[in-house]
Design a protein around this nucleic acid. Structure first.
Length: 446
RNA sequence: GCCGGGGUUGCCGAGAGGUAAGGCGCCAGCCUGGAGAGCUGGUUCCCGUUUUGGGAGCGAGGGUUCAAAUCCCUCCCCCGGCGCCA
């Protein structure tokens, strides 16, 4: 939620931000006129209540002095006044709720440097790292995607998709998962289970070493908490609810981590707080029909190690950079070639003021695919959640920053695509071997 | 799940139908060579204002009443005990 004062005092900033996102800026004007109406009603309500309070004190005095008839007459007057108050209260509440509903639909004010654009094609690559392995047929696409700014080698042999390779090696079972749970679920088996845990432990150790606090959060949270951290569209399209309970499955550890300090006033010296959350993530993936329908690239539940910070406003941008750098270092250590892209205005989620993705080169698919997403939500979540910190001029909303460290399923796809050889052997990145205890996964096991 | 105790302002803590004591912390002013102590005022949210001001707020939501932190319902959370469980 944006600061309503911004709407009252500087509505052009709000309009411009909405326009850049491709939304309708009249949302700002409509919200403001509701706010003006609400303030009128509130003023009327306050003066009516003032009158009641005065009379009520008077009644108390009369009763103490034994002036019963006078008191009864006044009571009658207050009863009439109360009927009027109730009427105005209802209207005030109605207008306020409508205003708040619209206010919550206004997306975060975007950072001025965010590239303006409409779709994925307008995202701006900012960095490339590594030497990509490119199949002959993908060389054209690769050059288009990198503009020649990334090193590559053409590989002669054909590569297998994880969708085929993993079941063939009995490392995953998609058919039985579909029987039991439906599409976009999976059983992971054997060494792949170990690999997943190795990835998690590697990412967690990496962040803990930097002083981040490891956290396993609740996997279900209440509606009030979920509404504080997600926008309406996310809630509708992504979030599973539990029937008969006021509980919703988290779509990322960011949700319970952001809500952890809701309603609190934090001491400035406690900031920034940096967390390494680890949790399963549950996502409906509504509207993703026909895309990545097989395998483990896009699934309804997966594990993720997440970076999350609660920060002072003046430090949130450097923390966003730090998070991106952390994630890059993780993927560099894994040896996976990637590019960093800045997400354009039209593709930003409502809570994001600015966002970077890391996309790993996937040799089988012949594309860069998103594995990491890093967002500065500025004060947007904090205002909804009422997370503030103490400053000399009062309580100020904190900033929240989130970024992936490792999403296990997508990273495993990246490993399978990048590190399989001619024989179909999957080589384990060196940094993971101390965690897995094996250096490769071979067909037929061993 | 059951029984009992509890949830009050940044923190602690009184108030048990009559309109939120007191202490601490913090901020400002006075005082001081400077600091401290002391004194004075302020210290949640909303509306209004040149100023004076008004309203809301006692875990959440309803109800009773002229008036609710206080009485009555529903729910949430914390502490203790019992039960159940990994």
């Amino acid at each position: 939620m944006i600061d309503i004062r911004l709407l009252r005092e500087n509505i052009d900033v709000v309009r411009e931000s909405i326009r850049k996102r491709g939304g309708d800026p009249s949302l700002a004007d409509e919200t403001l006129s509701l706010d003006i109406r609400w303030r009128e009603l509130q003023r009327e309500l306050d003066s009516l209540r003032h009158r009641r309070n005065v009379l009520s004190v008077e009644i108390g005095k009369m009763l103490r002095e034994g002036r019963r008839e006078e008191a009864e007459r006044l009571k009658e007057e207050v009863r009439a006044l109360n009927a009027r108050i109730e009427e105005v209260e209802r209207e005030t509440e109605r207008v306020k709720q409508k205003r708040d509903l619209m206010l919550r639909r206004i997306p975060n004010i975007i950072h001025p440097d965010v590239p303006v654009g409409e779709s994925e094609e307008d995202n701006v690559p900012v960095r490339f790292w590594g030497k990509a392995r490119v199949q002959e047929i993908h060389v054209g696409d690769f050059l288009a995607a990198t503009g020649g700014k990334m090193d590559y080698e053409v590989i002669p042999h054909a590569l297998k998709s994880h969708v085929d390779l993993l079941p063939a090696m009995d490392l995953a079972d998609f058919e039985r998962a579909a029987k039991v749970a439906g599409a976009r679920f999976y059983y992971l088996k054997r060494d792949l289970v170990i690999l997943e845990m190795a990835l998690e432990r590697f990412a967690l150790d990496f962040l803990v070493e930097k002083g981040y606090i490891p956290v396993k959060p609740p996997l279900m949270i209440r509606r009030g908490a979920m509404e504080g951290v997600t926008d309406f569209a996310t809630f509708e399209e992504m979030i599973y609810g539990v029937e008969g309970e006021d509980l919703y499955l988290i779509a990322t550890a960011e949700h319970p981590l952001a809500a952890m300090h809701m309603g609190e006033i934090l001491e400035e010296k406690a900031l920034p707080m940096k967390f390494a959350g680890i949790s399963p993530c549950f996502r409906k993936e509504a509207g993703a029909h026909g895309r990545d329908t097989k395998g483990i690239f896009r699934v309804h539940n997966f594990d993720k190690v997440e970076q999350f910070a609660i920060a002072r406003p003046e430090e949130s941008w450097s923390i966003l950079d730090e998070f991106v750098e952390n994630a890059e270092e993780i993927y560099r250590r894994l040896g996976l070639p990637y590019r960093v892209v800045e997400i354009c205005s039209g593709e930003l989620g409502a809570v994001a003021a600015r966002k970077y993705d890391i996309e790993v080169w996937m040799p089988v698919q012949g594309k860069f695919r998103e594995v990491v997403s890093a967002t500065n939500a500025t004060d947007y979540q904090a205002r909804r959640l009422m997370i503030r910190y103490r400053t000399p001029d009062g309580f100020v909303p904190v900033h929240t920053v989130n970024a992936t460290a490792v999403a296990t399923t997508r990273t495993m796809v990246a490993i399978v695509e990048n590190f399989q050889d001619e024989e179909g052997v999957i080589h384990i990145p060196r940094v993971l071997r101390e965690y897995t205890g094996f250096d490769a996964i071979r067909p037929g096991g061993d």
